[in-house]
Design a protein around this nucleic acid. Structure first.
Lengths: 326, 326
DNA sequence: TTGTAAGCGTTATCAA
DNA sequence: TTGATAACGCTTACAA
């Protein structure tokens, strides 16, 4: 590996001078500048970021902790984050926590040891006391952690209301909700939105609420049980798109026609909502934008720029497709 | 930040001793060991990986370069890679190249500067001359780069043959192929597999081959044109699952019933093949296993272990679902 | 069994 | 305008 020392020797100057031309810092004679640049070019010298990090105490690197990159929604987020940060020459460490707090903490520690300049995290479990001692900025994505940690999220409550109201407007009178895991904040907000919407029109029935995981299979089973027990259900608001797919599968299995006999709405607006048949009515979040916004905020924090607002809540949009249209 | 120096002072020893207990290297008296350990614990000392990297010239870090994490298939691969490497305390840099060679090279340079210990890359364009000068092991994933670079892939040719033969066995006599981009090696192999299978039974017709991108929309348009021009097509083998979805959408638009009038087969076995309706018959690759195998090989190479074989080609499996069953 | 000190490849301070 | 040189926090000969 060719180092600054080698370049300096070749150019007949000191390492300090090479460093100066490399960083455009301090005075350097135009001629020697050229000589040095030439040497750098000839030797294909690339400065060693590790050495630089050690000195500067920052690494042009950030961490992105998500529950599972494999879960649709997160790839889009990850892509947005990488797009924005790579623009400023940052690299992204990808970490899958499976939503487990011990893994999250392990990653935080590893990232700190690697001198990351900041971390973006999607977590339900982390509390300020777990992370307040880290000496780099942290932004929560998708799910707020706490009022002290800046976050970017979307209006889950409002989206859930809209989704439920839409079902009601479509004529549904027995509207069920397959809800996401109770310990996930956004699932709670969506549940609340659903509850308020059905209550307002006197359609609330606690039997029609059934919790499941954010996964196809889990939602499918939940929907199967629920539909078997209450065959008069005519609309389902699912905790997210993946769950909505599970609901549709269960409905098919039980011989329901979607949307004729059962209308289904999802949440998230993942790209693959469109590929299922019938296409899924959903509450769409601006996923890419959430990722890019969070990434920009993090860069601002890292580079000491003032940040406009600590909390950003994006509005969601009801996307009506076939799964609710008769 | 607390450093070894601080710990050493607290424990009343030298930094060398602290380093020794930290790395279990060299002799160290049991008592002083305990003292040091206690000090580490009390001060919550975490060694600085950057300093360590600088000295050791390795960083416990690898790079993963994919065209686009957003594209299904890659998240599963990424997850596998992260699972395996994190087991050995490695962290993964995620890089999206969009399949562009200049981005790939930029990432390689950045990764080298960051002292990564190795790189896993999915690329069609990279040639040995682009990467032979990097001083870390490289493994090609999904798409072989060249015989000098170890790779992990699957049997695309055989899979395509099986898929096509399956369509023929289902009674299709006009079997088309919407092929992936010609510059992607696996697309070429799949095309070849298709050609051989149709030729063998005298069903080859070059008009029924239509290239498109590995994307829904592109495949949809291609299929639309092809089906309009040759309405007697009764089977389509698509270049991958995402394309197969596009084909199904085009078919729906044109009023074809799948699978009754038109049978469709995909390739990849992405998780979401199951969510579309009709469920997609596909050639399934062991995606997770390919990722984990490549990651293990890379770790072997990094840690100087002998590697069993430079090339690994996984067998694929035809998964028959609704989209070809009448 | 332990400590001293050189070195990993940079940056930045201070003289020259 | 340039060059020595001391950091950055760690590892590892080598000496003690």
């Amino acid at each position: 590996m060719v180092t600054m020392r080698d370049v300096a020797k070749r150019a007949g100057v000191s390492v300090a001078t090479v460093s100066r031309v490399l960083n455009d810092s301090g005075y350097v004679n135009e001629d020697t500048r050229k000589t040095v640049l030439a040497a750098i070019e000839e030797m294909k010298f690339k400065p060693n970021s590790v050495a630089r990090s050690l000195f500067k105490k920052q690494s042009k690197t950030i961490g992105l902790i998500v529950p599972d990159i494999n879960n649709p929604f997160f790839p889009q987020l990850a892509r947005a984050v990488e797009d924005v940060t790579s623009e400023s020459d940052f690299t992204v460490f990808l970490c899958n926590s499976d939503g487990k707090i011990d893994k999250e903490i392990r990653y935080f520690d590893m990232l700190q040891q690697k001198y990351v300049d900041g971390v973006l995290v999607v977590s339900n479990t982390l509390k300020p006391e777990h992370i307040s001692h880290y000496n780099f900025p942290i932004i929560a994505l998708d799910r707020p952690l706490d009022s002290t940690i800046p976050y970017v999220t979307c209006n889950n409550y409002e989206g859930a209301r809209k989704a439920t109201q839409h079902l009601i407007e479509c004529g549904c009178v027995r509207v069920a909700h397959i809800s996401g895991p109770e310990n996930i904040a956004n699932a709670k907000d969506r549940l609340k939105g659903y509850e308020d919407a059905v209550s307002e029109v006197g359609l609330y029935d606690e039997n029609l609420i059934f919790p499941a995981e954010y996964q196809i299979e889990s939602a499918k089973q939940a929907a199967f049980k629920l539909l078997t027990k209450y065959p008069d259900i005519d609309g389902v608001f699912a905790g997210n798109d993946v769950m909505a797919i599970g609901v549709i599968k269960a409905a098919e299995l039980l011989g329901y026609k979607v949307p004729e006999q059962l209308k289904v709405v999802g949440f998230d607006g993942i790209e693959f909502g469109e590929i299922i048949s019938p296409e899924l009515t959903t509450v769409s979040q601006p996923i890419y934008q959430m990722g890019s916004t969070a990434a920009s905020m993090l860069l601002d924090l890292i580079e000491g720029r003032p940040i406009h607002q600590k909390e950003t809540t994006f509005q969601v949009e009801l996307l009506v497709k076939r799964s609710t249209q008769t």
